[in-house]
Amino acid sequence: MLEKSGKGKSGVNSPASFAKPDIDERLYLGTIEKGLLVLDTFCANPRPMTLAEVSEASGLNKSATQRVLYTLRALRYLTHSETTRQYSLSVRAMDIGNAYLRSNPIVEATYPYLLEANKQSQETVNLTELDGTDIVFISRVPSRSVMSSYVTIGTRLPAYATAPGRAILANLPSSDLNEILERSSFAAITPYTVSDRKELEEGLEQVRERGFAIANQEAMLGDISTAAPVFGYDNKVVAAVNIAVSTANWNVDKVEAELSPITVEIARQMSKVASQYRRL
Rank of each mutant, 00 (worst) to 15 (best):
223 D>F: 15
216 N>E: 10
90 S>M: 12
41 T>P: 09
248 A>S: 03
123 E>F: 01
1 M>L: 08
16 A>K: 14
198 K>N: 08
117 A>I: 00
201 E>M: 10
42 F>G: 04
100 Y>D: 04
13 N>G: 07
29 L>H: 07
160 Y>T: 03
259 L>Q: 03
251 N>D: 15
100 Y>W: 11
242 N>K: 05
209 E>D: 09
236 K>V: 08
85 R>S: 15
231 F>C: 05
41 T>S: 13
57 A>Y: 03
144 R>T: 11
225 S>Y: 05
13 N>R: 14
192 Y>T: 14
241 V>E: 04
252 V>Y: 00
5 S>M: 05
130 L>A: 00
129 E>K: 12
260 S>H: 06
56 E>P: 02
5 S>K: 11
46 P>M: 06
230 V>L: 13
236 K>S: 09
6 G>R: 09
232 G>W: 03
163 A>N: 12
187 A>E: 12
75 L>H: 06
37 L>S: 10
250 W>I: 00
27 L>E: 13
76 R>N: 10
253 D>M: 04
154 G>Y: 08
184 S>T: 08
143 S>A: 13
181 L>S: 08
122 Q>V: 00
93 A>N: 03
74 A>V: 15
106 I>W: 01
20 K>I: 09
258 E>P: 01
84 T>A: 11
206 Q>I: 09
96 I>K: 06
221 L>F: 09
81 S>Y: 04
228 A>L: 05
68 V>F: 03
146 V>Q: 14
210 R>A: 08
132 G>P: 14
161 A>D: 12
147 M>H: 03
135 I>Y: 01
261 P>D: 07
222 G>S: 09
2 L>K: 13
